[in-house]
Each structure stands twice: as structure tokens, then as C-alpha cells.
Measured scan of single mutants.
Amino acid sequence: MSIQHFRVALIPFFAAFCLPVFAHPETLVKVKDAEDQLGARVGYIELDLNSGKILESFRPEERFPMMSTFKVLLCGAVLSRVDAGQEQLGRRIHYSQNDLVEYSPVTEKHLTDGMTVRELCSAAITMSDNTAANLLLTTIGGPKELTAFLHNMGDHVTRLDRWEPELNEAIPNDERDTTMPAAMATTLRKLLTGELLTLASRQQLIDWMEADKVAGPLLRSALPAGWFIADKSGAGERGSRGIIAALGPDGKPSRIVVIYTTGSQATMDERNRQIAEIGASLIKHW
């Protein structure tokens, strides 16, 4: 067993022997301040990774656009098919120029040779490549099948209805392509620590998230040296922004954090800054 596999296998073990965790309302004060600064709703939840206990939450059962955070769930569904012998990570998928959609920095470079399922998941999570996500959605049967996968996990809230990039439209009061912070946090925890996926697939999923290259201005910008984070960000229309993450000190994750916002007129930089400040408060009061 590799060191990384050992780390993920012992996530519940280490967490069980940690000192009790206590909620700190100071972080919620910052979440509410972010709402004021952005002029928009902000949803927040913080779960203990081992027990699933909610440590703090704000608007945990209000719907927010998922945006690209759905790509972690998508690759979880792909990995479940791999575990069941219905898919192979090494299978190569070929596609054409007509398949390319807006923001496809990886797939646009491989029109000639195609990409493997493993490479597509890596591109979808680490670079948020939209064509990679659409190609992977095709392998599982489309958005409705991802929703069905989530329902089978016990998540009857999260739903995907459309493809990239239309799913980022974020129309107010439109339930399409949305989740709730509580539902997303619980589902992410199941994917990373539950028995739904094999140990190898859980490790692969967290490795992809740990290698995320496009979430630097968010929670990662607030992390002290030595902290662990595996995350996936999302951005959408109407001032929408979000991030889902597993993080913790001492090089291992111990909490799940989900943050979503929508309806702001603020710039992307300002949305990023507010999420980073929430992260800084979380870490300060850990």
C-alpha cells in the first residue's frame, strides 16, 4: 500500500482519535458579512469528516447552483462504474471539434489522439474542462443518470439537468442544476469515506481534487503551510461562485467545507476574496 493510499485508508482512524471539535460562531459572522459585502445569498456548511456531524452552517438547506462543483460527483459516478466493471479508466475516447464547448483548455489539445477516461476526469476536476465533463456525462448516460446515481446514494436534493455550459445559467428560483450545502457536503463525505467506492477509487477521487489547479484564489489562499486540501470550485452566471473541499491540518483532511453564493453584482475577484476570507476565519478558529 502506498503512503497516499495509507493516508486515505486511515482518515477515519486518525479522526477518531482527534480531540473533540467545537464550532466557532466567528466564522458564521464572516459568512454573514460576506453576504453584506456581496449583496447576495451565501450558503455555508462545515462537517466533521469522521462523524458527519454538522459543526457550523448557514442557509444549509437553500438551493444554490452547483456550477462546476458537480464534476466531482460526476467522476465519482464514473469511478463507481469502474468498480462495477462497467468502465475502464484506460479506455480512450475520441471526439471532434464539434464536441468542444466553451472553456476546454485540455480537451482542445487532444482532438487528434483523444483522451482516456482517467485523463478526462483529471481534466474535468483539476482544470474544470467543460468538454471533458460533457464527454464523461455521455459515458454514464447524461445528466439524468448522474441525478439517479445521487438518488441511489441517498441524495434526493442534488440534481443535474443540463450539460456544460448551460448548467451554469443560475436563474433565480430555478431548481435545475442545483444542490443544497448540506446535501453536497453529505454526498461528498460519502464519496470520500464511505463504502460506495473502493479504496482505490476513493484515493483516485481525492487525488484529482488535491491536484486542483484553478481554485488557488479561494480556500487555498488562506491555508497555512502543512495543511491538506482537496477541492473543486465552480463559477456561473449572475454572480455565482462555489467551492467544495476536504481539508485539515497535519497533512490530512478532517472536515468537509461547502460554500456557495449566487445573485451578486460583485466582480469575480471580490467573490473570490470573500470566500478566501471565510476560509481564513475557519482556519483561525479551527
Rank of each mutant, 00 (worst) to 15 (best):
L47K: 04
L282D: 01
E166C: 11
L73R: 00
Y260A: 02
K144C: 12
T262Y: 15
E108R: 11
F58D: 02
D36I: 15
D250Q: 15
P25Y: 08
I259F: 07
P143M: 04
G279C: 09
R159Y: 06
P172Y: 11
L282M: 14
Q97C: 08
A222N: 15
H156G: 15
E270V: 13
A280H: 14
N130P: 00
V29A: 14
G52W: 05
F70S: 08
G251A: 12
T187Q: 05
M268L: 10
A200D: 15
F14V: 11
I54S: 08
N130E: 01
A170T: 08
W163A: 10
I206R: 12
R271A: 10
L79V: 06
S254E: 13
E26T: 13
E26D: 09
G242L: 00
H5G: 06
D174I: 03
V78D: 01
P60K: 15
S2C: 10
F13S: 09
A40F: 04
E102L: 12
G236V: 02
L205Y: 02
I171R: 12
T116M: 06
L47D: 01
Q204A: 15
P65G: 03
T69D: 00
T126Q: 09
E61S: 12
R118F: 11
V78Q: 03
H94C: 09
A215C: 04
N272K: 02
L150R: 00
D99I: 09
T147E: 09
Q203R: 14
S80D: 10
P181Q: 00
G114Q: 04
L100T: 07
K252V: 14
Y44R: 00
S80Y: 14
H156Q: 14
E61D: 15
A230L: 05
N50R: 13
Q97M: 15
R271P: 05
D99M: 12
A34Y: 06
G263T: 05
L282A: 08
Q265L: 14
R81T: 07
P65D: 01
D174N: 06
I206W: 13
Y95E: 01
A34R: 02
T116Y: 05
F70V: 12
S68E: 00
Y103T: 05
L196S: 15
Q204S: 10
A245N: 01
D174V: 04
V31W: 02
E26Q: 10
A182M: 15
E169A: 13
V8Q: 13
A200L: 10
D177I: 01
K213R: 12
L38W: 06
M67T: 10
E108D: 11
S104E: 01
M115N: 03
N168Q: 07
L205Q: 02
I278P: 00
L28C: 07
P12N: 11
Y260G: 00
E56S: 11
Y95K: 01
P249C: 07
V214A: 08
N50F: 10
P181G: 04
L10K: 05
F6N: 09
L191S: 03
K144G: 15
D177L: 01
